[in-house]
Amino acid sequence: MQERKSALQQLDLSLLFFLFVLMCISLLAIYSAGNSAQYSADPSYFVQRQIIWFAVGTIIMLGAMVVDYEVFKNFSIWIYGVSMILLVAVHFAGIEVNGAQRWIGLPNVFTFQPSEFVKIFMIITLAHLLYTITKVPRPKTFTSDVIVVAKILGVGLPPFALILIQPDLGTALVIFFIMVIMILMAGVTFRMIGLLTTIAVSAVTFLVWMHNNAYNVFIQIIKPHQLDRIYAWLDPQENIAGEGYQLYQAMQGIGAGRLYGSGFMEGVKSQSGDLPEIHTDFIFTIIAEEFGFLGATILIIVYFLLLYRMVIIAFTCNNTFGTYIVAGVIGLFVFQIFQNIGMTIGVVPITGLALPFVSYGGSALVTNMLAVGLVLNVNIRTKHYMFGEDD
């Protein structure tokens, strides 16, 4: 027997609350960043624009909840086609900023980053692909696993490659991680997981060998500025005059925050202007320096609770297509959170990924709000049963 609930009753208010908390943290951190020496001309400029982006993102989130997510199955091929067209358009007609060609639009008027929206398009496309693969029971054989992995990689690798050559390693890695999540969700055997892990480790080992023995070929794959970031990650003090400068300053600021922080708008590194792009890529430095270890821990706990609610939605969803969509969104956020915080504390190299819902930005913020809208869409259309599911 099905227990009927309205869409409003099905709305996950806990998830929305955690999202609201992240918005508040974002506005506080961005306002503090706007008062630093590098932005002192108009301290409220960034926070005002962030409020606008939150408003736009909220409208997009609500819009994503209106249409039944099942409809996306009928348009997944078209969605994938739009993704490829946008990425090809960036290659031929994109706007170049700081050596990267990632944006489309009119300079100084309106621009957007197609690769941000491609993340969502890829989640929908791969979720539908996985749904078609798993809706019919398949034999648990190595050959069957090879076919599944080949299909997922066949869909995911073309946009991955197009984003990588922009170059945008951070977003390309997000696409790659979404593919990994979908492969795991497909239920492949440990033998296949072991093989893929071996291939990945071998690929990294081969790149290291190329760096040492075939450098001219190596830099055609890993661009010089990306290699400089790896050098800076390995030894920021040695490369402090170059790519290591941001990482060194960020780590100094985070360390200075200690347990309780230096106080709102009182951070030495965050207010001195020593750390470029502190309102975007390095927003975590402000939080850790001005609110200390406790403030940073609270932020991470809020992220954990947000993701926990999404995991619950994925588990309670009785539609595999919806489950795969939510799993893809979880993978999207997990990787971006880990990568952004990790790069500010020196755990991983700097890639330029924004901290979801906290960093200043337009395309990234709207994309993340759209992702939350998809999760809420799945949740409000999940059927609940009093005595088990109907056949």
Rank of each mutant, 00 (worst) to 15 (best):
I104Y: 01
G105T: 09
G105L: 06
G105V: 07
G105W: 07
G105C: 11
L106M: 15
L106H: 13
P107D: 05
P107S: 11
P107W: 05
N108K: 14
N108L: 11
N108S: 15
N108R: 12
V109N: 01
V109W: 06
V109M: 06
V109G: 00
V109F: 13
V109Q: 03
F110R: 03
F110K: 05
T111G: 03
T111S: 10
T111D: 00
T111M: 13
T111K: 10
T111Y: 01
T111E: 09
T111F: 02
T111H: 00
F112T: 00
F112W: 05
F112Q: 00
F112C: 03
Q113Y: 07
Q113P: 01
Q113V: 12
P114G: 08
P114D: 04
P114N: 09
P114R: 09
P114L: 05
P114F: 08
S115F: 06
S115Q: 10
S115P: 07
E116L: 03
E116G: 04
E116K: 04
F117H: 03
F117R: 06
V118I: 12
V118P: 10
V118H: 07
V118Y: 10
V118G: 09
V118C: 09
V118A: 12
K119M: 11
K119N: 10
K119I: 13
K119W: 10
K119T: 06
I120A: 12
I120H: 08
I120S: 12
I120P: 12
I120C: 11
F121V: 03
F121H: 11
M122L: 15
M122P: 06
M122T: 13
M122F: 07
M122I: 14
M122D: 07
I123L: 00
I123K: 04
I123N: 01
I123Q: 02
I123S: 03
I124H: 04
I124P: 09
I124Y: 04
I124A: 07
I124Q: 06
I124T: 08
I124C: 07
T125M: 07
T125R: 11
T125W: 09
T125I: 08
T125L: 06
L126R: 09
L126D: 05
L126C: 10
A127S: 15
A127E: 05
A127I: 13
A127F: 12
H128W: 15
H128Y: 14
H128Q: 14
H128E: 13
H128C: 12
H128A: 05
L129A: 13
L129G: 01
L129E: 08
L129Y: 09
L129F: 04
L130K: 04
L130S: 02
L130R: 01
L130T: 02
L130P: 01
Y131N: 14
Y131G: 01
T132R: 13
T132Q: 13
T132M: 09
T132G: 01
I133N: 02
I133M: 10
I133S: 01
I133R: 02
I133F: 00
I133T: 08
